[in-house]
Simulated scan of single mutants.
Amino acid sequence: MIELSIFDVDRTITRKPTYSLFLLHAMRRHAPWRVILTPILIPAALAYAGGLITRTRMKECMHWVALGRSLAGEEAEILAEEFATELYRDGLYPQAIERIEAERKAGRTVVLATAAPSLYIAPLAKHLAIADVVATGALRRGDILTHRIAGTNCYGAHKLTMIIDALEARKIDRAKAHVRFFTDHASDRDVCEWADEAFAVNPSPKMLALAQLKGWPVIDWRTA
């Protein structure tokens, strides 16, 4: 029996959502002048709120405004490593780090599964001594990072599909695995119901209501 402990990232182990913070960090370091383009995001945000564009498209628009249509892969990785280092140092709940370590000491394999880009989640995972990451990928042209998302955004039902695909790629039989899943958000309901144990961590109001309905344990590190 393999035992897996899967953690969402934004607002579950981090104090704040990370995508906008990463783009701001990268824009300041790479092309500060691009701040003048940020008003372009207003109609995009309204279109997203109105259901006219997808979350994927919204994220691509945000990337394009902050970093442009393409960026040298080596520079992108430097920016991502800088951000991940800062995030690990100042942006995580200490209790999250302790819980991850406790899961590992209990003999469980820890996984990060998040809609955030693998670009900076992979180096963050290394800081946490986590080898397995399921995250949103970026489309590359050779060594050039583009603003396009590769495949699907690791969000909602897509996150469950990507987790299942990752288990299959690692030749892990779900029937022989015990899965714990930790998340703050009700968009992860599918993964919670698929897991053997689900934990509502720093839950949003909708997630708290769902956890109470389902009887899932609630953990809140925000008040510690």
Rank of each mutant, 00 (worst) to 15 (best):
K214Q: 13
I130V: 15
A224Q: 14
A66E: 01
D173T: 12
T38H: 04
A96Y: 07
R141Y: 08
K16G: 00
C61V: 12
P205G: 07
I149V: 15
D188R: 03
F182N: 02
Y155E: 11
V179I: 15
L21V: 00
A186W: 03
I163F: 11
A200F: 12
E74H: 13
P117Y: 15
S118R: 15
L210P: 00
R99K: 12
P94W: 13
I121P: 01
M162E: 14
V133P: 00
F182D: 03
A106K: 06
R141G: 06
P32K: 07
P217T: 06
R141T: 11
I78G: 07
D8H: 03
H63M: 12
R69C: 09
E77I: 08
A135R: 01
M162I: 06
R170L: 09
C154N: 11
R89H: 09
R189W: 04
Y93S: 04
L208K: 10
E197M: 11
E197Q: 14
H178N: 03
K126H: 11
I13M: 03
L92N: 04
A157K: 14
A102M: 10
I163M: 09
P203K: 01
K171A: 13
H147P: 00
V218M: 08
P43N: 08
M162H: 10
T146W: 07
A198F: 04
L92M: 09
G215W: 08
A116C: 11
L71A: 04
I78K: 15
Q95K: 10
I219P: 00
R108E: 07
K171S: 11
H127W: 12
F22A: 01
K59W: 05
D173L: 08
I219K: 03
K126G: 14
A31W: 01
G142F: 13
Y93W: 15
A96P: 01
L213F: 07
M207Y: 02
H158K: 10
A49F: 08
Y93F: 15
H185P: 01
P117L: 15
L128K: 06
R189D: 07
W216A: 03
T38C: 05
L79I: 05
E101H: 05
D165V: 05
R15W: 01
F83K: 05
K214M: 12
A72P: 04
A224R: 14
